[in-house]
Write a protein that binds this DNA or RNA. Structure first.
Lengths: 200, 200
DNA sequence: ACATCATATGTACAATCGTACACATGATGC
DNA sequence: GCATCATGTGTACGATTGTACATATGATGT
């Protein structure tokens, strides 16, 4: 066990440094990327409303000034963060569906997508809803969501006709959102039932 | 045409009163209700993030102090506003479905619900998504959404079995949200097609 | 008539915010 | 080596916020 003095020193160095001493300059390439990730963490945990320069900087453990150096405004941070989130979501979508070789496999891919990927991480779900709200009032973010939706629809069209793809996309959206907001989320079996019913 | 002086006077009286003169006291029963409506207006137009005491007071044309008199906190305002919104939505749901006397009419009711009621007023849609986000971090609001979902499901169960009701509820959610976020919203015909396909 | 008190109004205050900006430092190209 | 400048760091400032609170007024019951 460490002496109390050492604990205090470690504590100060890690999080609550003595404000009188300047923190050592760090060589930190890719800090901008880390800040975007930190922004996503904050948005998921606290919401866009609580996402401030200072909070992101605290999570990323960088001084406040670093935010204004890497981003010209808070809007730019949010745009970068949501763009990364949408890209990440779309990639999962692409991968699942391009791995399916026939229609039956595609149906299974959709079920896995909803039950595992989308409902599995509550953080991603919250991020998506936060994005929807933010997009309602920010044209740049609206473009992000539309690109994302177009991409997921295209992925579905590898296996389904255009009309089915669009309807299925909506069903997925509904199943995920509805399930996530409910006290008793739908089980994978219920998801499977709903998808099969629609595609039967 | 009014003289400029009269215009100025009207302007001052209506919105930008001379701060030196105290505004006349108004007998205003039901002001609390009006404030909740004003809050809903602000949330729909500017978002929860921009919903402040001062902005609501401005929209309702009451002094700031009136907000803190009628509500102990901003959270209470939001809770009251979203509760009213959910109640209003649920009522529409109830009315449409209780008016249907057989299953065929119920299907038509669902289609009307989505295509007309839900997609018709973009304000209500925005309010719903704002509520979802707010509910993600506020237990009181989560209870509001859950009560709302339970009620709409019950309304559907007047005409459909429990499993179908739940799946249909999710589909409705997806169709509305998906359609609203898209550049080209689904047409009533497309909505009809999707619902019929699911319930066929 | 008049006292009471729920309601209405105006203002102050500390906290927090986005952003600007001055200064420090070391990686990099020459 | 060494100058340069991209990057890192600390701090200040005006604006806005939620909330508290002092004061004003008229509807209501007696």
């Amino acid at each position: 066990m460490l002496p109390a003095a050492d604990l205090m020193e470690a504590f100060n160095a890690a999080s609550a440094r003595d404000p009188r001493e300047r923190r050592p300059r760090r060589h930190d390439p890719g800090r901008r990327d880390r800040l975007i990730d930190a922004a996503l963490t904050v948005i998921a945990e606290r919401g866009v409303a609580a996402t401030t320069h200072r909070e992101i900087a605290r999570v990323a453990d960088v001084p406040l000034g670093s935010m204004t150096y890497h981003f010209t405004s808070l809007e730019e941070v949010l745009a970068a963060a949501f763009t990364r989130h949408a890209e990440s979501m779309a990639r999962v979508f692409d991968e699942r569906l391009s791995a399916a070789c026939d229609r039956e496999a595609a149906v299974e891919a959709v079920i896995t997508l909803v039950a595992d990927d989308l409902l599995g991480s509550s953080g991603d779900l919250v991020l998506s809803v936060e994005l929807y709200v933010a997009a309602a009032r920010n044209p740049a973010l609206r473009a992000v969501t539309q690109a994302w939706m177009a991409r997921s629809r295209t992925a579905l069209e590898r296996h389904f006709d255009a009309t089915t793809a669009r309807e299925l996309d909506a069903l997925i959206e509904g199943l995920v959102l509805h399930s996530a907001l409910s006290t008793d989320p739908m089980t994978p079996e219920q998801i499977r039932h709903a998808v099969h019913r629609f595609l039967r």
